[in-house]
């Protein structure tokens, strides 16, 4: 196996192992795109996360964002990853899916701009996204 193949295999294995691409190990990653997401916690603390990739709840849990517990591991059963999406981001983030809407409908802090981060995949289009962490139910 040539050196370049070895490099790609290792990178694929790294990504497959669940470590994701947040640390710049993915050779297919576009070099100039470094999606950033910011969480504003209930206490008003701003948590900026560079190179955010994949499911947003995993991004937030890994960075230990206060108020994002993600207890169910992204299954959309617990609503412990509830955020509010600012008006200017609503179009790009998109509306909640039907299951998510149903789960949110039982949350006493649900608002029209509520989303569960376990249902949001980070994309280049969402670079610069700011999310307000919702109060715990």
């Amino acid at each position: 196996m040539c050196a370049i193949e070895c490099y790609f295999s290792a990178a694929e294995a790294w990504n497959e192992s669940g470590h994701g691409t947040r640390f710049g190990h993915n050779p297919n990653e576009k070099p100039n795109v470094m999606p950033k997401v910011t969480f504003i916690t209930q206490e008003g603390k701003s948590v900026e996360i560079e190179n955010a990739d994949g499911c947003l709840v995993e991004v937030a849990v890994e960075e230990e964002v206060e108020g994002i517990a993600g207890d169910c591991g992204g299954a959309c059963s617990c609503s412990t990853c509830h955020v509010y999406v600012p008006k200017e981001w609503m179009d790009r983030v998109g509306p909640a899916n039907e299951t998510e809407k149903d789960t949110l409908s039982f949350n006493s802090h649900c608002q029209p701009n509520s989303r569960l981060t376990c249902q949001i995949e980070m994309t280049d289009e969402l670079d610069g996204l700011v999310l307000q962490v919702a109060p715990n139910d």
Partner: peptide, 16 residues
């Protein structure tokens, strides 16, 4: 890999 999976295996609401 079921997702979403809004089960109630741990109950639901205040008494979860």
């Amino acid at each position: 890999d079921r997702k979403p999976n809004p089960h109630v295996a741990f109950g639901f609401g205040a008494h979860n």
